[in-house]
């Protein structure tokens, strides 16, 4: 309340008009106070203008088709637990496979002569960069969207396969 003339503050009148305050004292005061009645009248007129302006904004084109196309491309909202579990297993097993591969290569490097060691070392670092990046990429893709797991996984497996073939060829040479 405004202490000088006992009139309610504007936020109080606004909250009362917005039906957020059930205050009988404001209702009876407004009934007896000309200046508050004027404030109420002005606020009501502004309310009407704001509402009609927002209602006059042009409607948006119907997005139903566009949104539903995106929805159908998504994993179902119940989480599709079987798909998620399968995806998770794929990531874990391929990461574990990569780890084994690197351990094997590291062991092979340790038992080779220095010239072979250099070539193998370069190949090792390259494969870590390529495969590590790809694994990280598809893991992130999966976490963020759940859409690109299979293609990314296929690329990773292909890169792993090529690497193994190359290493075999190198060790045969």
């Amino acid at each position: 309340m405004n202490k000088k003339n006992n009139c309610p503050d504007r936020p109080e009148i606004l909250a009362w008009l917005d039906k957020e305050r059930q205050d009988e004292t404001i209702a009876s005061h407004v009934g007896n106070c000309c200046s508050c009645r004027e404030v109420v009248k002005k606020i009501k007129e502004e309310n009407r203008l704001i509402k009609s302006t927002l209602e006059s904004l042009p409607p948006m084109q119907d997005l139903n088709e566009k949104i539903m196309a995106r929805v159908f491309a998504l994993v179902s909202p119940d989480g599709n637990s079987l798909f998620s579990a399968f995806s998770y297993l794929l990531i874990l097993s391929s990461s574990f496979g990569m780890l084994l591969l690197y351990l094997y290569i590291a062991g092979f490097l340790a038992s080779s002569s220095w010239s072979v060691l250099l070539i193998k070392g370069i190949s090792f670092v390259t494969s870590i960069i390529v495969n590590g990046g790809t694994i990280l990429d598809y893991a992130l893709d999966w976490i963020l969207s759940g859409k690109t797991l299979i293609p990314s996984l296929a690329i990773t497996v292909a890169v792993m396969f090529i690497n193994i073939l190359q290493k075999r060829r190198l060790s045969n040479d």
Binding site: I67, M68, F72
Partner: peptide, 14 residues
């Protein structure tokens, strides 16, 4: 599992 019903919510609130 009836995904297509989401279209009703889209029409209602878009």
């Amino acid at each position: 599992g009836q995904k297509s019903n989401f279209a009703v919510l889209v029409s209602r609130y878009q």
